[in-house]
Amino acid sequence: MLVGVPKERKNHEYRVGLTPPSVRELTSRGHNVLVQAGAGAAIGLSDGQYQSAGAEIVVQASEVFERADMVVKVKEPQPDECRMLRPDQILYTYLHLAPDPEQTKALVESGAVCIAYETITGPGGGLPLLAPMSEVAGRMAVQAGAHYLEIAHGGRGVLLGGVPGVAPGHVVVIGAGVVGTNALQMAIGLGARVTVLDKSVDRLRQLDLVFGNRITTAYSNAQSIEDAVLDADVVIGGVLVPGAAAPKLVTREHVGKMKQGAVMVDVAIDQGGCFETSHATTHADPVYIVDGVVHYCVANMPGAVARTSTFALNNATIGHAIALADKGWQRAMKEDVHLRRGLNVCKGNVTYQAVARDLGYKYVAPEAMLEGN
C-alpha cells in the first residue's frame, strides 16, 4: 500500500502523522510511504531521516493526497484537504465530527473511508489512541491554568501552590477519566487544593484510594458542579462522551458568578466543549474573557508540545496503521472489532452512531460496509 503523510495545516500544529521509526515499520513490510517535505521539521524530524527510513519526499500536499492509498494525519482535514480526498481512499486521523457539521458533510461528499483515532477502542476498554493526547492535554491544562492565573494575563494573581501562610489555589477538575486524572496529578504536584467530580462512584473511590486526603472527590451533579466552580481559581473540563458532542456542564449563569480572574480550561473543546461559554481558540490567540473569567479553549493543546505528542501518538497509532496497510481496511476491520469502531464515515455514509444522531444523518452500521468484501 502507498501511505501518505502531509504536513499539518491547522494553526500552530507541528505534530506529524508518522515519525521516521513508524515509516520504517511500514517500509520494512514492503509498503511505500510519501512524506511531504518539511512535515516534521519543526520538531526536529528532517527529510533526511524520513528518507533513511525508506520514505519518498514530495513537495506538495496535493501529490500526497493524489497518490496515496491511505493518508495518515494528526488533526482533522482542513477544507482544502477534504476536497483533495477521493472515493475509497483511507483517511486515518483524529476527526471529532460531532461538533463539526461542515467537516462531516465534506467527508461524506468525498466518498473516502474515514477512520477516527478517538473512537477506536481497546481490548481492555477505553480509547487507546485518544489516551496519549488526553494525558498530554490533562497535564498541559494545569500549566495553562497556572499561567493565565497570573495577573498580567488577566488572571486573579494567584499562585496555585501558595506559600507558607497563604492558602494555595483551588483547582476543580470535572471528569475523572484520562484527562482529569493527569490534570489532578499535576495540580497536586504544584501543591494546589484539588476537587475532582465524576458520575462514577467507583472511579472516585479509586482516586481516593490512590490520593487520599490530597484531593476532595465529589459526585457530579448540578449542585456539586455549581458549588465547586464558584469556589474555584481554575476549572478544568475533561468530560468525554465517545464520539458525541460534550455535555454543557458549566452554564453561562455559573460563569457570571465565578471569581473575577478565575481561569477555565476546556479540554473537551474538540468535541464542542463542556462549558456553555466555550468556543474553540488557537495557540496564536488562546484565550478570551467572559464576565471577567479567562477561557482557554485551544482545540489542539498537545500541539504546543509537538515532539512529545507526536512520539506518544505514534506509539498508539502505528499498530492499526500497519494492519490497514497489510490487510486493507475491509479485512482489517472484519478481523478487529476495535478498529471497526473507528470507522466514522465510509463511502458517503455516516457509520458512527453518535455522530449520525448529533448531526441528523442516517446511521449505517460499519458492518454493513464490510458485507460482500
Rank of each mutant, 00 (worst) to 15 (best):
127 L>H: 10
280 A>Q: 08
336 D>I: 14
205 R>C: 05
291 D>S: 14
91 L>S: 07
156 R>L: 12
132 P>L: 09
158 V>T: 09
254 H>K: 06
158 V>Q: 01
155 G>N: 08
252 R>N: 02
342 G>W: 04
99 P>D: 08
63 E>F: 07
287 V>T: 15
84 M>T: 08
176 A>F: 14
360 G>I: 08
138 G>M: 05
196 V>L: 02
60 Q>R: 15
94 Y>H: 10
161 G>T: 12
90 I>P: 06
30 G>R: 12
175 G>D: 03
234 V>Y: 06
108 V>F: 00
270 D>L: 06
357 R>S: 12
4 G>N: 07
72 V>Q: 07
35 V>M: 04
142 V>P: 00
81 E>L: 05
197 L>H: 14
311 F>W: 05
34 L>S: 06
143 Q>N: 03
190 L>R: 14
371 E>L: 01
327 K>R: 15
55 A>L: 02
157 G>Q: 03
356 A>F: 09
294 V>I: 10
369 M>P: 00
82 C>L: 08
313 L>G: 03
359 L>W: 11
124 G>V: 00
34 L>V: 07
364 V>T: 15
91 L>Y: 12
89 Q>W: 06
98 A>M: 10
23 V>T: 07
364 V>Y: 10
8 E>W: 14
125 G>K: 03
352 Y>C: 00
185 Q>S: 02
175 G>F: 04
203 R>Q: 15
303 G>T: 15
125 G>W: 03
329 W>A: 08
354 A>H: 06
134 S>I: 10
32 N>Y: 13
197 L>D: 13
321 A>F: 10
355 V>R: 05
362 K>W: 00
262 A>T: 08
49 Q>C: 03
7 K>F: 05
333 M>T: 13
345 V>Q: 05
136 V>M: 09
52 S>D: 09
342 G>P: 02
136 V>L: 03
367 E>T: 10
155 G>C: 08
171 V>A: 00
154 G>M: 05
348 G>R: 04
189 G>W: 08
98 A>L: 12
140 M>W: 02
10 K>N: 06
359 L>H: 09
90 I>Q: 06
239 V>N: 00
340 R>P: 01
282 T>S: 15
115 I>P: 00
363 Y>L: 04
301 M>W: 07
6 P>F: 01
205 R>P: 00
